[in-house]
Design a protein around this nucleic acid. Structure first.
Length: 475
DNA sequence: GCATGATCATGC
DNA sequence: GCATGATCATGC
């Protein structure tokens, strides 16, 4: 052990133990002259912790910060919401160098894995306009990826690698993958980056762990004593096993579970699965959940894999003609969240819209001109199609306008339907109520008092275009 | 015919 | 009691 240091830089546990001193403190509280080391920018806090707390010279070499222990130090922000501490943003790990990555075919060879396979995560509470040395640390986590997560991250990496290798780096999207995301990095207007197999410039991106993934880590450290976690225990229902993942991709495993049921209606599927018949409006969703989870889980959004990846299961009924009657609702707008979030890519809506979607489509077998559907006709919707989908960049750009418009209205205290995009504006997304009438005027208005409850929606037309684009791909 | 406002079973 | 997932129903 180095006598000059209060910890052993070659020993991961020792580095982790030394982080316990940070909890509930700011650098300023621990080290009166911390302000002399004040740095600028986002990575500044991590560098200051290394310098002041660990007496370690920050390096920019490609390996982990603590090279001998193989530990990468990451300071990552939390915000406060109604539930207490919450993840503020994805964990940005390292920039993607498209040219270099083209020579790193597997996860094990990748810069990301060499640097970040073991991390010391230090969560702090974000405060706008605060000095870095005054930010207070809340939790510490010594992180190693569980085997199953590594298998999924290997599949994620292969998806990102293949896009780069096939000259498609400019089409990368955070929604392409499950846990490891290729997130946007840098400002609008930044110059595009060169990619190896195409002359088209690609946006700057970084390997990152998705907000949903970080949330599951945060949830577990919240339950652990002393605001500390060094051994992650997977405690949620699992959709797929390690053995399955070694043979097939996660998505293929889930898709194949639907194979026996194509062409069958709700009643037939429920009977096959031994499930009781439901009269709920979302009974197609209920049965899709049972198929995907092999009847193990009521709501696969609660499964380990869906929680960590943020994948969303959506069930749609399509008419015989291919038209779709209903628009698609998401969660109700949290006006305080919108009010307090000043960056599109950190918003709740960005996370929802850029997540990976799993669509389960039931299609009507016969021409049906009537809007009202008899019980008999109801049973003529049969399982037609299941696919994973990610919103294309053009639509994400439109969604940014949608969010900005909502946010401007919230900031201006214009929380009324007449101010928002509606479906006849024909801009893919609109704002509309959801929920019973009693609950309409019960939401918190950030300007004080209450506000009507509205929800984020996909226009029915937009949903139809998603389904149609999938037809084209399959033909 | 469709936009808009309203509703409901479910599960925690 | 409430969020969720999704569909219903009315009136223009």
């Amino acid at each position: 052990m180095n006598d000059l240091l209060p910890y052993d830089p070659k020993n991961a546990m020792s580095i982790y133990e030394h982080a316990s001193l940070l909890i509930d403190k700011s650098l300023h509280m621990l080290y009166p002259d911390a302000q002399l080391h004040e740095r600028k920018g986002k990575g500044g806090l991590g560098q200051m912790v290394e310098e002041i707390h660990y007496h370690y010279t920050p390096n920019s070499i490609s390996g982990p910060d603590f090279a001998d222990a193989g530990i990468e130090l990451k300071c990552t922000p939390l915000k406060k919401d109604k539930q207490g501490y919450a993840i503020k943003e994805r964990l940005v790990c390292n920039m993607i160098d498209y040219v270099e990555t083209d020579n790193q075919k597997t996860l094990a060879e990748s810069h990301f894995w060499k640097k970040c396979k073991h991390m010391l995560l230090v969560f702090y509470l974000h405060q706008a306009h605060s000095l870095l040395c005054d930010l207070v640390f809340i939790y510490r986590v010594l992180w190693a990826f569980p085997e199953k997560d590594r298998l999924i991250i290997e599949q994620d990496y292969a998806i990102i690698y293949n896009k780069i290798h096939n000259g498609l780096a400019h089409t990368l999207s955070e929604g392409d993958t499950m846990y490891l995301g290729a997130c946007r990095k840098g400002q609008k207007g930044d110059s595009l980056r060169e990619q190896p197999h195409s002359s088209i410039g690609a946006k700057r991106r970084a390997f990152s762990l998705k907000p949903a993934y970080m949330r599951t880590i945060l949830e577990q450290v919240k339950k652990s004593p002393n605001r500390s976690l060094c051994a992650y225990v997977q405690d949620k229902s699992e959709l797929v096993s390690i053995d399955e993942l070694k043979r097939k991709s996660f998505e293929d495993i889930i898709l194949e579970r639907f194979n026996p049921y194509f062409g069958k209606n709700y009643l037939e599927i429920a009977k096959d699965l031994g499930q009781k018949i439901s009269n709920a409006k979302h009974k197609y969703s209920l049965i899709a959940n049972r198929i995907a989870s092999q009847c193990n889980i009521n709501d696969i959004n609660d499964s380990e894999e869906f929680q960590k990846s943020g994948i969303r299961l959506k069930t749609i009924r399509v008419e015989h003609s291919g038209s779709i009657k209903e628009s698609m609702a998401f969660k109700n707008i949290d006006y305080e969240e919108v009010f307090n979030c000043d960056r599109w890519t950190d918003s709740e809506l960005f996370e929802i819209f850029t997540s990976r979607f799993m669509f389960v489509v039931f299609k009507h077998k016969h021409k049906s001109a009537t809007i009202k559907i008899s019980d008999k006709e109801e049973n003529e919707y049969v399982l037609d199609k299941v696919f994973f989908w990610t919103m294309p960049q053009n639509d994400i750009d439109l969604a940014e306008q949608y969010w900005q418009h909502i946010r401007n209205n919230v900031v201006d205290n214009h929380i009324e339907l007449k101010y928002f995009w509606n479906i006849s504006d024909n801009k893919n997304f609109h704002v509309r109520p959801k929920g019973t009438k009693q609950s309409y005027h019960t939401d918190v208005n950030p300007h004080g008092g209450s506000a009507d409850r509205y929800c984020y929606w996909f226009n029915a037309q937009y949903v139809q275009s998603i389904i149609n684009s999938q037809d084209t791909l399959n033909d």
